[in-house]
């Protein structure tokens, strides 16, 4: 891969955006939030983040997904943690989400709309939730 210029980036964006404009994504947004505090990063959250991006791309869902990094969700013992908010599914925080789980996670939760067994850790610890 050669060094991309800003002009090439702009051209690439234009061609992608035209593809996207044809699809209807209104109100179907999926939010994925990856815990990237010190605990998360130590457990490999960066690798998980990259693997999720690749898996979403592989499943052709990049126009429907918003991905964010956040700090520690208070579940340091099951890092890396990933929260998913999407229409038609309960909001879930998954734990122990190492990079090798990323593809299974995207397939199960985002594509097949079923929960990922053995990784569900409900909600953030009490001291993290805003009162």
């Amino acid at each position: 891969m050669a060094k991309m210029t800003l002009e090439e980036l702009r051209a690439l964006r234009d061609s992608k955006r035209q593809d996207l404009a044809r699809r209807d994504v209104e109100g179907k947004e999926i939010q994925i939030i990856v815990g990237m505090g010190t605990c998360g990063i130590a457990a490999g959250a960066k690798l998980t983040f990259d693997a999720i991006v690749e898996a979403v791309q592989r499943h052709g869902l990049e126009d429907k997904v918003v991905i964010r990094q956040t700090g520690c969700m208070g579940l340091c013992y099951v890092e890396p943690t990933v929260e998913v908010v999407m229409p038609g599914m309960p909001t879930v925080i998954y734990g122990k989400m190492t990079q090798d789980i990323a593809d299974k996670f995207v397939r199960k939760h985002l594509v097949e709309h079923s929960l990922l067994d053995n990784h569900i850790f409900d909600r953030p610890a009490a001291d993290i939730i805003k009162k």
């Binding site: 964006r13 992608k16 126009d63």
Partner: peptide, 8 residues
């Protein structure tokens, strides 16, 4: 934050 932008 949009995945398509992030990939680019």
């Amino acid at each position: 934050e949009r995945m398509d932008s992030l990939i680019l």
